[in-house]
């Protein structure tokens, strides 16, 4: 039994079928990278895993427990599965500290003082202790994204989903976010990330999955996917990435 098991997952929006039978396994402490062209279903898959989108077929299991379909307590699931978005989605009317403490206080019922102490610890870790009282629009994109990661971590998730979290950042701000992910990976955080940062994927991933037209077209260790891809589509995709100078 894998930590996260995705079995033949389909997702349709009306006529459009975005996911056409995804199969994927993620073990604890693994970092799994989803790569593929825009629109191949990476983000949709991540949103399905923590219930932001309902799937149209198949099933997803977390620690053997089915987390899709009727009767699932999504609020409870989401305490275990955190997600970080491409566009940060911080709450603009709250300070950094309030962003990070809102869910622990309201969802987990942790007393405010304790939640704030923990949040300050997280902020210290991401190097933004001094910005605790700042509002999101006073921060740079990289800082906002690190706060968004801290906000997800404050719930102590067992699985962290990261949806192209560096795509909206200026190039010089990407590294500060990737460094944080490296630390998390080194600490054994289980992560599933959709990304266009191929060298990063190559460096930290336990497994890389190439999504093509709504299915996992090829998967394997990063050395294989990047060094010796077996499938024609994978090779074509990677050669375009290399052409663009991204690998």
């Amino acid at each position: 039994m894998s930590f996260l098991e995705i079995r033949d997952v389909h997702k349709r929006y009306g006529e459009l079928e975005v996911l056409k039978g995804i199969n994927l396994k993620v073990e604890q402490h693994q970092v799994v990278c989803l790569i593929g062209a825009s629109g191949c279903g990476k983000s949709t898959l991540l949103r399905c895993i923590n219930g932001l989108e309902a799937i149209s077929g198949g099933e997803i299991r977390l620690e053997g427990d089915r987390i899709t379909g009727p009767g699932v307590d999504l609020d409870r699931l989401r305490r275990k599965v955190g997600i970080v978005f491409q566009s940060f989605n911080l709450f603009p009317h709250m300070t950094v500290l309030q962003n990070v403490t809102l869910a622990p206080i309201q969802v987990l019922g942790i007393p405010r003082a304790e939640a704030e102490a923990r949040a300050m610890e997280l902020l210290r870790r991401i190097g933004l202790e001094a910005k605790a009282k700042a509002y999101p629009d006073q921060l740079s994109g990289g800082q906002q994204q690190r706060v968004a990661i801290a906000r997800a971590l404050a719930m102590d998730p067992q699985l962290l989903l990261l949806d192209e979290i560096t795509s909206a950042l200026d190039p010089e701000l990407v590294s500060e976010v990737l460094n944080l992910l490296r630390e998390l990976a080194a600490e054994g955080m289980t992560m599933l990330l959709a990304t266009h940062e191929m060298s990063f994927a190559r460096e930290v991933a336990s497994k890389v999955c190439f999504l093509y037209q709504g299915v996992v077209h090829e998967e394997g260790p990063p050395e294989q996917i990047f060094g010796d891809p077996q499938q024609e589509r994978t090779r074509a995709f990677l050669s375009k990435i290399i052409e663009a100078g991204r690998l």
Binding site: R47, N50, L52, L74, D75, R76, R78, R79, G82, I83, F85, S87, N89, L90, F91, P92, H93, L102, A103, Q106, V107, L108, R151, A152, M155
Partner: peptide, 28 residues
């Protein structure tokens, strides 16, 4: 809608999301 996603993904319920995230921003 991304504010709904962000709040719900943290485990906040529908009414908690309205109360802490959506209404305070809408009122302004």
């Amino acid at each position: 809608p991304s504010q709904w996603s962000a709040a719900r993904s943290l485990g906040l319920s529908f009414s908690q999301t309205l109360r802490f995230v959506i209404i305070p921003q809408a009122v302004r």
